[in-house]
Design a protein around this nucleic acid. Structure first.
Lengths: 102, 102
DNA sequence: ACTATATTTCGGTCGTTGCCTAAATAGCGA
DNA sequence: TCGCTATTTAGGCAACGACCGAAATATAGT
């Protein structure tokens, strides 16, 4: 779970996930979308793969990356569980929350 | 949005949010739950407050922290939008995803 | 005004992350 | 096998984040 949030913490990695959400792409194609060196992107791929958010498949000389939907959903579910917010929750209908201090 | 994910990236901060989800607590009370120095926790509070995830209210010499549900929901909504996963989504009913590479 | 309590701000250390260039690896076609 | 393309690994450096102890600030009570 911690790896998941860690992976999601970097804007470039989130953008990569958003791109892969549309379609599978090669490392090179993804890299072209950013103004960063290829090795830097490769490092980001590594973090995402380690977290399980993406998978790689070799196709010729290229590596095709795809998003792993089940893990992505796990991330969302984990965050919802942590904050205990309902899915389609409207502007917070004030679920029961113990007074605590006040 | 980036501040939100950044704030959620640290396990201690996530735990703080989970605690505050139950009830509002003073800085000291929260600090007691961790084996960390007070200044360290104070730094975490600062990050969470900056992200809008918590708010502080002074009560005597103490500072009472509360979670900000609407921002918490915004975080969940943001993650769902990024990954485009449905809320109660079962084990991924394979939404349409362009073939892209194959 | 002084003291005690609660919390933050300050200054510094240390490990990690993000980025780069250069070099290594992997696959493919001639 | 050689050469070409695609991508990763290695090495190094600057910036950042997390942590601590000490000092500063804020509030309340005496």
């Amino acid at each position: 779970m911690s790896d998941l949030f860690q992976a999601l913490a970097h804007p470039v990695r989130r953008e990569i996930l958003a791109m892969l959400r549309d379609r599978a792409m090669s490392a090179g194609d993804i890299a072209e979308a950013f103004d960063l060196a290829k090795p830097t992107l490769s490092g980001h791929f590594s973090v995402l793969k380690e977290a399980g958010l993406i998978t790689a498949e070799r196709r010729g000389a290229s590596l095709i990356y795809r998003i792993n939907l089940s893990v992505a959903e796990e991330a969302v579910a984990g965050l919802m569980a942590l904050l205990r917010v309902a899915p389609g929750a409207a502007p917070s209908r004030r679920r029961k929350q113990a007074g605590g201090v006040r």
